[in-house]
């Protein structure tokens, strides 16, 4: 294990956590990410037992999950493996595919509601031009948020992940925090 100490995308030793009303925002540095793209004519593998989802989809299996990012292309998530060389592990699971390390290309903000899906719908209304009513559990999409490109994943009725570019972490957190804070202020 290296003796270098990592910092979070928001620049601190510990990930940021904030509760605003019924919503909790959590920076998730433990999320390992690697992209998986099929070679021309290749068939989709089932890394870690995952069934790679169709466009707009997200599928989970235990600590692993995958969401569609383009034709023949997915992002594979591994909870708790942010510090490891997760791309190497995925490569072993998906031989013959193009795998690229993506963990630190992104920052994942996990948003949890203690009042069901409604507060998440309200939050989405203020952040993204995506119809929350048609974005139930198992949906993932890429969209714009305050001039930033993000992935949006509905992990459960009461859980939404917003995955943005790591270097934009501060601006993205600010946008989410502001919107969530205004829901409380109303």
């Amino acid at each position: 294990m290296s003796d270098l100490k990592p910092i979070s995308a928001l620049g601190a030793a510990a990930p940021r956590l904030l509760t605003l009303g019924t919503l909790t925002l959590r920076e998730n540095p433990g999320l390992g990410l690697a992209s998986l793209a099929l070679r021309r004519g290749g068939t989709a593998p089932s890394p870690f037992g995952l069934t790679l989802p169709d466009p707009g989809g997200w599928a989970a299996s235990g600590a692993y999950a995958a969401f569609w990012t383009g034709p023949d292309q997915w992002m594979i998530e591994a909870e708790g493996r942010g510090e490891e060389d997760f791309a190497a592990a995925l490569k072993a699971e998906a031989p013959g595919c193009s795998i690229t390390e993506q963990t630190d290309g992104w920052v994942a903000f996990e948003i949890t509601s203690v009042a069901g899906g409604a507060p998440l719908s309200r939050l989405m209304e203020k952040l993204v031009n995506v119809d929350a009513a048609g974005f139930g559990p198992g949906h993932a999409t890429r969209t714009g948020l305050e001039h930033m490109s993000v992935f949006l994943i509905r992990r459960a009725e009461d859980r939404l992940a917003i995955i943005g570019m790591r270097t934009l972490a501060g601006s993205l957190w600010h946008a989410i925090e502001t919107a969530a804070g205004r829901l409380v202020a109303v």
Binding site: R39, R40, T100, E101, T103, D104, G105, W106, T167
Partner: peptide, 15 residues
């Protein structure tokens, strides 16, 4: 589109 090529940005991933 006939070429076997896969692309992804890694600008942010590496310091």
């Amino acid at each position: 589109p006939d070429l076997d090529v896969q692309l992804i940005s890694t600008t942010d991933a590496w310091a």
